[in-house]
Design a protein around this nucleic acid. Structure first.
Lengths: 203, 203, 203, 203
DNA sequence: CATGAATGAGTCTTCATTCAT
DNA sequence: GATGAATGAAGACTCATTCAT
């Protein structure tokens, strides 16, 4: 079963979602089609299972980072979040790339929606605990932040960007996340710390 | 033929990329399959053409905004850019949504890459002309910025978000773009100087 | 289309309903599977169409006989009915035999029910018009009569009975139909004709 | 195994012959497929066994009735015969209905033929012993009579007829059988003579 | 003996593409 | 140029049967 799962990813990476056939996956897994269908009721379920695992891995990585950074300041949160997200996405680049197509194909499936939601909720919780700042519209912020990470990373994956570029983008995403979080929040009544907000006010 | 093109989008919207067939498109366009094949060598070409038009529309909208904002300050650029991008993407929501799947399917096609590149170049040119700021790593900034807009917008489209949410995100994206551009650049020493930007224009 | 229809019957005759495949039918018809599916939405529809034609042929033959014998006496009706039914069933023995399996497979389909009904109604109308007799429970009589013809004929078909046997059964069925009709009815008030009824009374 | 046998009938009743699978039968019987194949060499054998049992039950019921009515008069024979046949067929209506499809599928199998033959022979022997009448063409009569009972009963089963209809048909079948037997025979000259029937018994 | 996972040939069905009219 | 019937390769899925445990 794990073999089929793995084979599915390999086929996805090699020929893409459009040319993936159950027979090919079975062959690659070293089993017969019949066996494949003993574990997955149909092709769609197979793809969904594979996609789910991938999405969950990323979501869990994000959730974990969120829990770890609880109550830190916004800058630390931004850095940890970006790092966790990229680590998860780049853990298996080719799989991430291949599954992008699957996610699109499975379109409006609640699977994708569910994972997005989980991430956003973790994010909202995290931001609400920020030591230095207070957010008005938590849901919008977390939704925009999540999207703003996903977009560029997707771009890197699709373009098969080389490591230096990935690193540069990583740094920029951190900068952006921090800047955005500061810009979309107000300072908490804690002591003397109005430097960066003041900067913001000037724009 | 425009009718076929239009029909293709309609079918895409109604049944999705997976269930789109050349016959269905032809029927919807009020012509025969044979005629369809007179204008497009194969299904792939048809989809590519439709996708290209869509992407070009967005790219051109962005390029136009870039030209218009040349030499303004970063804050104005951010606002104009986000507005132009969202206007283009939300001009035909269902088409945008439907074509998302097509873009994924056509995967690494150079079509998508080409459009991304064009946008990034426009963006780079634009940012280089900013009256108040100077960027070190223009390419990374424009690439990250572009991705950071695409991501959240994609999310809105897939979730079929209602107008108020779209507006909220629009505002946040503007905030984010501005904050990011400021955070990733340094203040220009001399106020009114448009020499290097002007040079840029000439390329 | 007629070719496919015909081919379907041939395949049915040669390999039986269980081993009939759409590909085989198409091959036999000298067309491709695709063509077959242009005329019949699926295998079931094809079989249903073939069965329907067969059943309709028989039903129409019976209906015609019923119309022709209107208002004759019961004995003549019985003879004509049996003759019409057998003629129709034995017009294409192998097809009749082959379609028996199809009818069973398509089981409770309203197709079979509809045809049975049509026959029974014709029969009821016919019997109601008998010049010499009056029936109390027309529906039961026609239903039993129809079944009593179908049963033995089915037996002949399945056993591939030789002509002499068929003829003998034909004669017996006529005898039986006549005897049954007389036994299940009462004489009409018309003049002096009480011979056969009297026989009935004695049983 | 009886459990498998029984399970087979249940599956037949519930999902029909077309959707019957060996696995489903095994599951229903509470054993594994492997075990099923220990008792039946293949699916066909299983179905044949089940069908055979059913047919034999009916045949034996008829044979028993035939033995019991030996040397009675034709009217009593008809009544007893019809009653025995219907009792057997309606003992398990759903099973009878389900097995109809199996019988058709197993088509020209000698199984069906063998059972028909046994019934016809019993019937012939019975009729030969009739105290009041003498038949010329015993084989044709019994074959026609058997068929004339099977046909209407099959119709009732397929239509899932309600009890009153079944009763009405029962009565009509009795009338018909009696009428037919009288019409296809000649009166015996000597009343009490059981020589030839007795001879028949010895064969 | 029982088990049930594995097998893979065999079915139905779809659809991009062609080409004679 | 337009048409749309014909094509047939390809794919999803089923299920009778086997055999190692």
């Amino acid at each position: 079963m794990g073999a089929i799962h793995e084979a599915c990813i390999q086929v996805l990476v090699e020929v893409g979602a459009a040319r993936l056939t159950t027979t090919r996956v079975a062959e690659r897994a070293g089993v017969s089609v019949g066996t494949l269908y003993q574990y997955f009721p149909n092709k769609h379920a197979l793809l969904a299972a594979v996609l789910e695992q991938h999405l969950l891995r990323v979501v869990e990585s994000v959730e974990e980072a969120c829990l770890t950074c609880q109550e830190l300041d916004v800058a630390d949160m931004a850095a940890a979040l970006v790092a966790a997200f990229m680590r998860a996405k780049f853990a298996d680049v080719s799989a991430s790339r291949a599954l992008y197509g699957v996610a699109a194909e499975l379109g409006g499936s609640e699977l994708v929606a569910r994972c997005s939601d989980r991430s956003r909720q973790s994010l909202s919780r995290l931001l609400a605990s920020a030591s230095d700042r207070r957010f008005e519209d938590l849901d919008t912020v977390s939704c925009v932040l999540a999207g703003a990470l996903v977009g560029p990373v997707q771009g890197l994956l699709m373009a098969d960007a080389p490591a230096p570029v990935v690193d540069a983008v990583h740094r920029h995403l951190t900068t952006m996340a921090e800047a955005y979080l500061l810009a979309s929040s107000m300072p908490r009544s804690t002591p003397s710390k109005a430097a960066s907000p003041r900067l913001k006010n000037m724009n």
